[in-house]
Simulated scan of single mutants.
Amino acid sequence: MLRRRCEVTAMNGWKSLALLALLGSAACPAPAAPPPAAVPTALPETAVQPVPSPEQIVAIPPALRALLQQRVIAAGTSREQRLERLVHLIFDEDGMHLEYDPYATSTIAETWQTGRANCLSFTLMFVTLARAAGIDARVQEVAQVVTWHQDEGVIYNVGHVNVGLTVNGRTAVVDLDRNVLYDRYGPRPITEQRALAHFYNNRGAAQMADGNTAQARAYLDAAIAMSDDFPAGWNNLGVLDTRLGRLDQARHDYEKALELQPRHVAALTNASALYRKLGDTRRADRLAVRLQQVQKTDPFAQFRLGNEAEQRHDYANAIDHYQRAIRLYGTAHQFHFGLARALFLAGDSRRASREMTRARDLSGENADTLRATYQAKLDSLQRWRQRTAAN
């Protein structure tokens, strides 16, 4: 279990409030499923269970409602006090003592029972409880994020959700990861229907991964019924239909995803592979070219490609991609650190030191632990250079 800090990031002059929380490494919501390499061997289907209704997903259990009334609503006179008490109720040992589980896309009742949740489950629960306590809260969506894990490198995620708040006219964001890097658009409020579509889509992807295709379809159909303009849901339906050999339907699914979001990387990748499988190489090539164009202008895609090249020990290519990412998004400390690491591994310690310094300076005044980590790495690099020069 990896403990991090949940940060209430203030805007409009509201002082930032850092509170204990939990963070894991999985994307939240779950990433769109990749194209299958081959149709897997069919597994015995279990009976399809009814999907929970929207009301069941966000229903507050009576015991939790009583605790909310006692420890948050009755005990806090102001909304700021209620907000702080709500966070303590969720994470303190004498409260829910919530633990992170990347696979726990859960209803509020299930989260209350198990004490486990992923980012999406946490966000749905937090927003629901906050509203019950008289706090203006909403689910927010980020299309892409990069998450920094102190000594474990960086992880590229396709999506993320967090909580948006308005308290006494001032706005703030509650996020499980204080070191998350948002894409250029940042968090955007979404409707309740879209948030619930994420829930059904996550569960559908999980069922598909387990080989329960009928149950997966029930959840993915529910996601589309909840929000038919949800490209991730259509893409995952395309993956499911491809796995089942329903290639004409899969083509429709991917085309719908790309109609809604022409730059959707997973749908572009999957659709291109499908058209190639169908023998339509002209359309496959056209989509592949579009994918390359999207990646060239997307700093997150360039960062991911750099990370993949680094894992292959192709440091020259990694440096090239990291530099492109920085040209597109120059204030991301994660990108500068990636470049510093690749430069060091390529033997260019002087430029690596410069990029490490830049990463440290960009990490933010409040990110004391991260700044200290960068400084320690920078000191280690400088000592290594001194020893090398002495020899």
Rank of each mutant, 00 (worst) to 15 (best):
V8N: 03
S16H: 12
L17V: 14
A21I: 09
L23P: 01
S25R: 15
A27H: 05
P29M: 01
A32N: 05
P35E: 11
A37V: 05
A37W: 10
A42T: 13
L43K: 15
P44I: 07
E45G: 02
T46K: 15
Q49G: 06
Q49M: 14
P50K: 12
P52E: 10
S53E: 09
Q56T: 04
A59S: 10
A59D: 00
A63C: 04
A66E: 11
L68A: 00
Q69W: 10
V72M: 01
T77H: 12
R82E: 04
E84M: 12
L86P: 06
V87M: 13
H88D: 14
F91C: 07
G95V: 07
G95Q: 09
H97C: 11
D101S: 13
T105Q: 11
E110S: 02
R116K: 15
T123Q: 10
F126E: 05
L129S: 00
A132W: 10
A133D: 04
A133H: 07
A137F: 00
R138C: 07
A143C: 02
W148C: 01
D151W: 14
G153D: 03
V154G: 00
V158P: 12
V158F: 11
G159V: 06
V161F: 02
N162S: 08
N162V: 00
L165R: 06
V167W: 10
N168M: 02
L176V: 03
N179A: 10
Y185T: 07
T191R: 14
E192S: 06
A197Y: 14
N201Q: 13
G204Q: 05
G204N: 05
A205Q: 04
Q207R: 15
D210M: 13
G211F: 10
G211P: 08
A218G: 03
D221N: 09
A222W: 14
A223E: 05
A225I: 03
G233W: 13
G238N: 03
R246W: 09
L247S: 04
L247F: 07
D248R: 07
Q249M: 09
R251Y: 06
H252K: 12
H252T: 09
E255H: 05
A267G: 01
A267T: 08
N270I: 00
S272Y: 02
A273T: 12
D280Q: 15
R283D: 01
D285M: 11
L287N: 06
A288Q: 15
A288Y: 15
V289P: 09
Q295I: 03
T297C: 06
F300A: 02
R304W: 13
L305C: 00
L305A: 11
E308I: 04
R312L: 00
H321L: 06
Q323H: 12
I326V: 07
Y329L: 02
Y329Q: 13
A332N: 05
Q334L: 09
G338M: 02
L339M: 08
A340E: 08
R341H: 09
R341I: 08
L343Q: 09
F344R: 15
F344V: 01
D348A: 07
R351I: 03
R354Q: 10
E355M: 12
M356E: 09
R360L: 04
A372D: 10
A372S: 14
A376V: 11
K377S: 03
L378A: 06
R385F: 00
T388G: 01
A389Y: 14
A390H: 14
